[in-house]
Nucleic acid binder design. Sequence first.
DNA 1: AAAACACTGCAACATCGTTGCAAGTGTTAC
DNA 2: GTAACACTTGCAACGATGTTGCAGTGTTTT
Lengths: 139, 139
Amino acid sequence: MEQLRETLKGHHLRTTTCREDVLLTFMNKKNALSHGDLEGALGENYDRVTIYRTLKTFLEKGIIHKVLDDEGLRYALCSHQCSEEKHQHDHIHFKCNACGKTNCLENLHIPHVTLPSGYQPESFNLLIQGKCPECLGNN
Amino acid sequence: MEQLRETLKGHHLRTTTCREDVLLTFMNKKNALSHGDLEGALGENYDRVTIYRTLKTFLEKGIIHKVLDDEGLRYALCSHQCSEEKHQHDHIHFKCNACGKTNCLENLHIPHVTLPSGYQPESFNLLIQGKCPECLGNN
DNA sequence: AAAACACTGCAACATCGTTGCAAGTGTTAC
DNA sequence: GTAACACTTGCAACGATGTTGCAGTGTTTT
Ligand SMILES: [Mn+2]
Ligand SMILES: [Mn+2]
Ligand SMILES: [Zn+2]
Ligand SMILES: [Zn+2]
């Protein structure tokens, strides 16, 4: 609880219950969340629009990052210290086709790729889809 | 023109002007296209819904594949022979942050990744964002 | 030619995401 | 503690995106 406030303070954001609850939801669920997921979890307490704006703010401040998958856009906590100036991510995302959950594989880095000359890379996003350990265990 | 018909026939699809035009648009523009792009190009000739259904059909038949980027979903031609049964893609996608275009780098393959045990990979999707050669040339 | 099948346009609808504005809340300085 | 201020929220309205059902039209098969 107190940790939440520090996270928000650390990114120069006012502590509001909506922000605390969104942050808490990200920390409880381990997987990446879409706006719809959050609306399902918190929609009775907060307006749809407020949740959109909270996500946008968190994104700008470096608290969460985008996670792309074939269904659309999701978000996950930035584990290492990102800031407004510098979002840096080079980890892999895994989506399970069975349970539908998408996760950050934080300690698995995207391998280096040599681009054709003339291309200037700035950011990388690798999504692997397949079956996750939990779903393989219950087969 | 005749090539278009053969592509459609080859995938067991009837040749209609809408399908020909959508296919032609993909071949003329080199970059990945969203439904909105196609609607902009062909919307006066065909209904929105027909374009959606054409994309869905092409996707199922293996004529086009999905391309994910941070703005949403786009589509690009499958260069190698994909079919209804088997979509196989291991190439890299590049999105230019300056001009906004997303392209397939057909001959650049996604490097192999060793996943933690328990994960069973099935498909891979690597998006690199940065600046494309054209935009770097005009700076 | 008739029957079976496939494709299209239209209308209606559901979902998703954005914007403007007025009211409310958290923070800071006194 | 209070007042001032800037920031945040909810609501309403809107635009964009994507889906479904159905009737009409065209194509293929027999
Ligand atoms: Mn991640
Ligand atoms: Mn591609
Ligand atoms: Zn799973
Ligand atoms: Zn460019």
